[in-house]
Amino acid sequence: MKCLFINNNGGGFADFIEVAPGTTVAQLFAQHVPQGRPEDYLIRVNRQPVAADQVLQEGDRVSCTPTQIEGARS
């Protein structure tokens, strides 16, 4: 099945990806953000906070936004 996966870290990524049926939010995060810790991200499914063990559905919109994004001065 396909889900829209958005990773707002760095340059930002947003595209449909193939997801195996029964994949949970935590599993998807571990697959696509291997260096990241879930607690360092705002993880939303269809723009709502969800439990880590929620199973994804066809067409879900999954976004991961870092909680810490350092600004600059110019």
Binding site: N8, N9, G10, G11, G12, A14, I69, E70, G71, A72, R73, S74
Partner: peptide
């Protein structure tokens, strides 16, 4: 000043 968020904000 968006710093590390500059590219992601522009892309969004």
């Amino acid at each position: 000043c968006e710093g590390e968020g500059q590219v992601a904000i522009a892309a969004a």
